[in-house]
Design a protein around this nucleic acid. Structure first.
Lengths: 199, 199
DNA sequence: CGTGGAGTTGAATACGATCAACACCGGTGG
DNA sequence: CCACCGGTGTTGATCGTATTCAACTCCACG
């Protein structure tokens, strides 16, 4: 995927989802920075400060934290037409460090403060879309908190399948398990049990 | 606490935190609706649609979900100078229902879409403060997700004590336990263990 | 007083974690 | 072409953390 294809993807996304016109888009397109990133490469780590918001044009990124023992915990992921990033307020103060890396070869758009300021000024439609997006994001997080404090491992996995049916195939079980707060072994057993009940 | 004291509290909060001037404030103060709510009263329930954002001038509110068995799960709470609400996108689609109630006698400000639109138009300072507020809120949610998927019950409680030292005294253990995704019995044992280690 | 909610404690249970062995596959290099 | 390897997932056995159920204490409040 070329840079201009990536930008075109983004433009069409904003046109459809946010009702941002082509003309408006062109006024802030210069703040966009396209990045090609190969599978496995780390995009953001807590040492090298370079924490922005990213729009995924192609591929799959993940946001995770490592604990004191080096174990990784999936906080978030993003495939095509999704956003990811810690939106400039990094750090889970704790003994945890935030990373973003590419789980597949990806093409992403790096969007900094200047982009958001520019776009919000140039396009009221973008501003209100961005606000709605953040609200939706917060609601998803509440949903996830609820399922973590209120349901067991099997229910969480079932909800995951309902919410992200497509990603369930694309992500390895290890990552899904981590996202859901369980071990890969547990997830494997849950899947086995579910498969048996089908008969 | 009188209505005008409540509004004055809010005004002074916005002045200090958001750099909103008194003059600006007066231009959108008319969209504010003060509510006195006694301990135990339900403010928002999934049936009666009346879901806004609330600013707590005095008292303590909690946002919780009930599951299919009627058990309550604490999603959030708010004491003085905090915000609470599901910001107009209700519903954890699931078999869960969202409620907000007063855990203490409270005085709160009801802030609807018209308030946010008005304030953002009248005061750029408010708009940018509101955006920062949402970012901070999202980061707190990520922090909470991390502690739920990455740490055990004791660590979660210790983190809670560090993050909300004041609320730890004000909230009954039942609610803290629910907030942290454990049973009251477990929390009780954790506290016992911690008290013994002190000696 | 007496009643009910909150917290504590104990015993038994269960869910999920851990540790370890193995199967399966896709890719790499001899 | 096959042998080997590492990564991913599966399965079993055991362990441990947290839940469940139940009884009891302690207050605050009527």
């Amino acid at each position: 995927m070329t840079e201009s294809e990536a930008i075109a993807t983004f433009q069409s996304y904003l046109e459809k989802q946010a009702a941002v016109s082509k003309q408006e888009f062109e006024r802030f397109a210069s703040f966009i920075h396209v990045i090609q990133i190969p599978k496995g490469r780390i995009l953001v780590d807590p040492n090298k400060e370079r924490s922005q918001v990213y729009f995924v044009a192609k591929g799959l990124l993940r946001l995770f934290a490592t604990d004191s023992e080096g174990k990784e915990h999936m906080l978030s992921f993003a495939a095509e037409n999704w956003w990811i990033g810690d939106r400039n307020n990094p750090s889970l103060d704790k003994p945890a460090e935030l990373f973003i890396d590419a789980y597949e070869d990806s093409v992403i758009l790096e969007l900094g403060t200047r982009f958001f300021e520019g776009a919000s000024e140039q396009s009221p439609a973008f501003r209100s879309f961005n606000e709605r997006l953040m609200l939706r994001h917060m609601n998803k997080l509440y949903q996830r908190v609820y399922s973590l404090i209120g349901t067991n491992a099997k229910q969480r996995y079932e909800e995951f399948l309902r919410t992200y049916p497509n990603l369930a195939q694309r992500l390895p079980q290890t990552l899904i398990a981590s996202y859901l707060g369980m071990t890969p072994e547990s997830l494997s057993r849950i899947r086995k049990e579910m498969a048996q009940l089908k008969n």
